[in-house]
Amino acid sequence: MSEIKERSPDQLMVFGIIGGLLGIYLTYLLPLAGERIGGKIEIVLNTIAPVAGALGAICAVIWGADAVRRVAKYGLGTGVPSIGQIALGMGIIAAMFGLAIIKTQPLAGPVVAVITASIIGFIIGWFAQNVIKMKIPVMIRCMTEIAAAGAIIIIGYSAAVAGNYDFVNNLIPRVFDNGVILFIFWVGAVAMLHPFNACLGPDEKQKRMLYLAGSTGASTMAIVGLAAIITIGASGAITMILGIVLWIIFYKKFWDEVYNDAASVVGTGLIPKTEA
C-alpha cells in the first residue's frame, strides 16, 4: 500500500477551534460593524451574520469527527454513537454555562464555554482512564477535544437559528422555548458520530471520513436554516441554501473518494479449495 497522508490531530484541532470560534464571533461582530457603516451594507451584514455561525459549527463537526475517529478506533465496547452523545451532553452543559455566566462581557462567552467544556471533558476522560480503567491511551485528549467540539457545535448552530449567541435575550426565546435546541443536540451529535460510524472498517481512510463529516455538518446546516427561517427570516433562507450547496459539494467529494478507494480493491475470486 502506498503511504497515506493524513491530517494531523493538531492541524484539525486548530482548524476546528479557530474556524468554529471565528464563525461564532462573526455572528456578533458583523452586525456591530454594520452599525458603524450604516446604509445598505448594514442590512447585508445583518442578514449574513447568522450564516457564519453554522459555517463555524461545520469546522467543529469536522474536528470532532476526527477526534471520535481517533478514540473509537480502540473499540469502546459500546459503539461509536455513545461517544457522540456524551460529547454533546458535555458540550450543551458547558455552552449554557459559558454563555449564561458572562453578563457584561459578551465577547468572552464562547471562549469560556470552550474552556469549560475542555475541563469537563478532561475530568471525564481522566476518570474513564484511571477509575473505570478503559486503557485507551488517547482517551483523555480525545474526550477533551470532543467536549470542546460539542460546545462549539451547539453554540454555532444555535447562533445560526437565534441570530447571535446572547443567552438570555436571543437563545432562550428563539432556541430553547421552541425546542429547536433538542434538534441541534440530536442532529449535531449524529453529524459528529456518523462519519466514523459509517466509514469504520478495515479500509477506513481519514480523507474519506472528513469529507463525510463535512457533508453531515452541511446537511445539519440546511435543516438548521429551515428552523432559522421561522425564527429570523431571510438569514435562515441563506443558511439553508448555502447548507444544501455545501452538502452537495461535500457529498460529491465523498462519493469520488469512495469510488477512488474502491478501485484499488482487487477481485480475488472465491477461496480456492485446497486438499488437506
Binding site: G77, G79, I92, I93, F127, I132, I172
Partner: peptide
C-alpha cells in the same frame, strides 16, 4: 422548563455513557 429540561438531558447523557464504558457495552 426548557432550560432545566435541556440541562437535565445533558446530565442524563453524560451519566448514561460513563457507566456504559464501565460495563463494556
Amino acid at each position: 422548563a426548557a432550560v432545566a429540561g435541556v440541562f437535565t438531558m445533558g446530565v442524563f447523557y453524560v451519566n448514561s455513557v460513563i457507566p456504559s464504558y464501565g460495563v463494556g457495552g
